[in-house]
Design a binder for these strands. Structure first.
Lengths: 189, 189, 189, 189
DNA sequence: CATGAATGAGCGTTCATTCAT
DNA sequence: AATGAATGAACGCTCATTCAT
């Protein structure tokens, strides 16, 4: 799964060591940008990955490309996670999981919103929206979410609350209480 | 009101021209940081304000001071706005107004979260929290908000949704639909 | 004496308050440059003198002029001190006094050497040289200094040792021991 | 000898081109700081060395590091020079050589005194003091220096006179005459 | 391909100097 | 004459990006 989502998709296949470096860089970048925000230096990423700075730029010609690649990886993970859920509670579960994860994966949201260095991944985001749309439909079919609710506001809440959890430094209790309000708003009266 | 909240409050009164520049810088900074995030350059702020770079630093000795000043101005405005509301619908109105405003004032939230260059205004934030707490109490007394809801999650939702509105570029309809879910979650069942 | 050496010598006479400011600035500058070296800021001098920065520049159009004025004041003091001495030991006494003073008046030497912002005061320095020359002649007449010694090397040693005392942070003992060597070198064999 | 004292001593060996640049920067810095004092700009050093400003900072992360490196280089040279001398006249020779060198190497002393940007090289300075102490002992043993003279005042004179020679712009004759006085002071009566 | 030295635009900040008040 | 706000060149330093090795 890791290998799939990380493999570059255009051009000739990479040599084994190049492929290994690519992943090490992505992992390091995830850590670094998580800890220090998108303003963190690319040198630091290289250092953490144990490669030279030139290697980072060979794999990702600009810093934006690097940020974009991290984001893509995360989106793919999220989409998979969403795809594995279902039923009346699937949407609520996904919502909860995402918010909890966000506490220790600031990148998730910071980048979803193209913070700082602008990044566009409309395609991948589209896939996530589809997956969440599936969960919403199932929940409405099961009667756990009001039929008045539509996908755009669900996505909007998902992103907002996840961002809030990350940047507001919410603890477990605050996360739970906040989600309780949102969930109450989603359920049928 | 604008003049009041922008006047500096310590030291001797500023000369008329200095006071004028101070405001021009704040306005320019608001625009610039809104458009380009807190990483935008102080030079750009000076250029936009039509003053030399030294003038910006004379008024705000560090970039952080400038960011802090903007934030303070905005918080003061918010607190005043909250203070002027009340009754069963006051909290909902304030929520709505804030979210709508945020569409054209990205700074509001971007800075509330002290993104990047750290800014601390605990006192002013505390005042805002108090004001919102007042609105919440009134609403609960009037029976328009469930007694199970507490202030922390209201603040959390306020910040999250406002941020989402800004950075997600929500249009009026999406704002309305998203708030509808949140309000439904706040109201008693 | 103070007033004499500080009065400006060209143009119309100064108003009383201007004259007072001129002296306050010189005193402040002496302190500031003594404490922080010639790199200290002119603002700091103004602050210490209790005047606005514009006033400093009205009296001394450039920073160099200010440094030059301080130096002139000090030279005048030195010349007077030298002029009051005489006899076989006068030169040794002056040497000793200067070195001791320098310990708490770094400016004396720092500026004698036109440190940093170049300053030229050939005229005043000439006067000091003359005064020291007088002391040297008297000492040689009295037989306390070797007839082989000439004025240039005496001045050279004066400046060098004074500088060393200042910047080397010599304590009283080291000053005494170092001067003992120099004096032994000056005396006839 | 030059190459030895200039090679950096920690971390992996530098690439040939980096090593070349490192030396060019040191040489340029020596010139620039000699001509304009420690306040001279790092840009000027880069220009003189024919490299970009970033290269200077890659080799010496702060201006202080650059100043420190120059100083270290010079101290090493001095220590070696002192170490190669000996006998009754060694101290006098070293003194003379140092003073003469200083005429075209202002940095020698300017930095020995850590002017302006503070630099600390206590260890290297200690080595120099030891070397001079050796020369002093030998001279006293040979009877060419009075037993009353101790190391601290010898160092004090060394620094003072060398500084004077540099900043006073002494010509060969003045150097000789001044040293004659100092040497007479050092010799036994 | 990987390396890491070099580049240079750009940033935040300082400060001598000018000039409107 | 005094004030102090405004100016803008210059500085130390960072970092995304390029390219010789």
């Amino acid at each position: 799964m890791e290998e799939v989502s990380s493999r570059q998709t255009e051009g000739p296949p990479l040599r084994a060591d190049a492929q290994r470096n690519r992943i090490r860089i992505l992992v390091a970048a995830d850590e670094v940008f998580t800890e220090n925000g998108p303003g963190a230096s690319t040198e630091e990423v290289a250092r953490r990955a144990g490669v030279a700075i030139g290697t980072v730029f060979r794999h990702f010609p600009t810093k934006g490309d690097l940020l974009g690649a991290i984001m893509k990886r995360l989106l793919v993970e999220l989409i998979e996670s969403a795809g594995q859920r279902g039923g009346g509670e699937g949407l609520f579960e996904f919502f909860t999981e995402l918010t909890a994860q966000a506490s220790y994966k600031r990148t998730v949201v910071g980048l979803l919103e193209s913070g700082g260095t602008a990044v566009r991944l409309p395609e991948a985001v589209g896939h996530l929206t589809e997956a969440v749309g599936g969960l919403l439909s199932e929940a409405q079919a099961a009667g756990t979410v009001s039929p008045d609710v539509a996908l755009p506001e669900v996505m909007a809440l998902l992103v907002s609350v996840t961002h809030g959890a990350v940047h507001g430094g919410w603890d477990a209790e605050l996360r739970e209480r906040t989600l309780a309000v949102v969930f109450a708003g989603l359920r049928p009266r």
